[in-house]
Design a protein around this nucleic acid. Structure first.
Lengths: 197, 197
DNA sequence: GTCTATAGTACGATAGAC
DNA sequence: GTCTATCGTACTATAGAC
């Protein structure tokens, strides 16, 4: 698995720690990953980890923040290259599906419902910028009369929610074929639920 | 919140422990809930808890097993009273939505993606009987030509997946109105994605 | 900024009386 | 079957040399 984290604001130590944290938090979970585990996996010593981060929880918070920023950048690039709401829906779904295929830990960490458990004061993931962006694309479709006018949360659940559900099944190894092979059928199907015919 | 757990096979001590476990595991998470926390919340002593359960993990496993059995019973009753796939889809969705409204801890525990973290050897929730039942209803609709023939996982993600996504948004307090008020619009919308027109 | 060594704590689980 | 008291462990976080 190629590294996914890139952020010039972060030191070498921080990046190494965050990369190990991503692997271990997804593999074993936050609470079952000890600082000694992180030390062994990253090659960074306890002292350096605590020099770079206030405590264990703030490692998770930094990781989340870094991932959300990076995801947001990639989403904005997709929006810049696609104007209508269907293309945006399709390309954003494609990005999520391909990222789940190539960097499953990233999507597993983001989709893991239990962030509140170890980052109590962080707002829920569904109110973060990347999820707002998904809903804005649906709102755009409704404004342009391409989509049936309905409650935004209902429309977003039925469209992107369906795509995300399939991704979660893929991450749980419940699918026979690789996730990207489902791209066209899942986007067609989910879009049909909200499209003006 | 009324008690939800009923199981004649379980002792009074076991029920009290499991009820406290449900509250605390959902509120604070499995790992942040200590045995002393359970003792205080349930009024059952450490010794009695360890007499009734092998260890902390097996409390969570018993809880999951009990909930899944109970959910399965309620689903089977719905199937017995509804024969066609649309009614079954609608009534099963209604049950999930109403249960999320009346017993949010139950659905939060079931939908919490991170069971693997504290119950490593349990199969993923999406392969449990209640989730199989949902997929069987979709398969039935495709067999009866009421639904468009497509990959079962795609169809299930787009239909029940959309409903479950809205439920999760409700559990995260992202909805303006009470979850049950969305029942008709979310079931209509999600069903449209897979229905023969 | 990096390291090793360790302090301090809180927990899971058990022992053993009733 | 229930309880209190406690053992042993493993962890987070810090101290302090380089």
């Amino acid at each position: 698995m190629k590294p996914y984290l890139v952020n010039p604001k972060l030191s070498k130590t921080q990046i190494k720690t965050l990369e190990s944290a991503l692997s271990l938090f997804v593999e074993k979970g936050f609470f079952k990953t000890s600082i000694p585990d992180l030390v062994e996996h990253s090659g960074v010593s306890t002292g350096s980890i605590y020099h770079a981060f206030k405590d264990k929880q703030s490692i998770a918070e930094s990781l989340m923040e870094t991932l959300l920023e990076q995801i947001n950048r990639e989403q904005q690039e997709i929006l810049a290259n696609n104007a209508d709401s269907w293309s945006r829906f399709y390309e954003l779904s494609k990005w999520m599906i391909n990222t789940s295929d190539r960097h499953p830990q990233v999507m597993r960490f983001i989709f893991n419902g239990q962030h509140k458990e170890f980052m109590p004061e962080l707002p829920p993931i569904c109110s973060s910028q990347p999820f707002l962006t998904l809903r804005k694309v649906i709102q755009q479709g409704m404004d342009e009369k391409v989509l049936i006018k309905m409650d935004l949360m209902v429309a977003a659940s039925s469209s992107f929610g369906g795509v995300m559900r399939l991704i979660q099944l893929g991450l749980d190894n419940m699918l026979d074929d690789p996730l990207p092979s489902y791209l066209d059928s899942i986007t067609d199907t989910c879009w049909r639920s909200i499209a003006q015919q």
